[in-house]
Computed example of a mutant assay.
Amino acid sequence: MDQIALHHEASAGDTNRQVVNQLPPEVVQCLENARFLNLATCTNNQPTVSLMNFTYLPSSQYSPEPVIVMTTNSSSKKTHNIVANPNVSLLVHDWVSHRPPTQTRRPSGGSPGPEHRSSLASVLMNLNSGEISRISATINGTAELVAQGSDEEKFFREQHLENNTFDTEASTMPFGSRQLQAEQGAGQDDGGRESFIAGEEVRVIVVRIKDIRTSDWKGGVSDWVLVNEGVPAAVNGVK
């Protein structure tokens, strides 16, 4: 089997560092294309990662800077983590993940080889091969719980609800989408949106972006530092 040439760049330092006053276009496209992201919070050296619906807003009357909006139950682990430690990381990508066939069958069965792969699986694999040239983005920022009952909370909640209202019925969504809706209140006509976005116990989270690390599938990485005039630049939260 021909090996795909990969390259590796050290990810601990300032790799291809660029200081910008707006998000790079490729990161914006990634945020606009992706349906979900992974939110990492941490307290007492115990990290927690959650799969989240999100809304990207390039600017608003409440923030001239780009923000990412999410919602969570007031009693959730991530809510308590954010109160104790507002520093968060987000991982977002817009390609479809597909496991390629292994060279040998594993005891558990492993991935099917080419001779066992259905035509549909082959099509999906080919589609993924075409998409895999896109980036993933790790975004570091500061999260805050918007004041309950405020106009700001109402605005961000409405934007988030609108961004997560789809024409597609839940029955035709990918399994991951259906599973997340089930966990967050599926079974309602709105697919659970009223439960996980508009419910009385739901808090609105706004993440203000500090820096971004982009990575392509060959291991190439770049650092993007988002700054305002007069604010010292930082990479991965370190000035």
Rank of each mutant, 00 (worst) to 15 (best):
V69Q: 01
G110R: 06
P112H: 04
S129T: 06
G141F: 08
V146P: 02
K218G: 02
L127N: 07
R106W: 09
E169D: 07
K77G: 03
P24M: 06
I212D: 08
I205K: 01
Q188G: 15
P58M: 01
R134H: 12
T102A: 11
A182W: 09
G219P: 07
I82N: 03
S76I: 02
R99V: 15
T41D: 07
P24Y: 09
S59I: 01
K154I: 02
V88I: 15
I139Y: 09
T72G: 15
A84K: 13
K154W: 02
W224S: 07
V207K: 02
V221D: 08
T142Q: 09
Q3K: 04
K154L: 07
H80I: 05
V19L: 10
S111Y: 01
V235Y: 12
V206F: 00
E183I: 12
V96F: 07
K239P: 14
G113C: 04
V146G: 00
R17N: 10
E32Y: 05
E9P: 03
T172N: 13
R17A: 14
A198H: 07
D223N: 15
E200W: 04
S89E: 10
G13N: 09
S195M: 12
A84Q: 07
H116K: 11
E9F: 12
M173T: 10
F54E: 01
S136I: 04
Q148E: 09
T15N: 08
I139F: 06
T214V: 14
R106Y: 12
G141Y: 07
V69D: 00
T48W: 14
V19Y: 06
T102Q: 12
V202G: 00
D94S: 15
I139D: 04
Q184N: 10
T138D: 05
S133R: 07
E229V: 13
D94E: 08
G130F: 05
G113W: 10
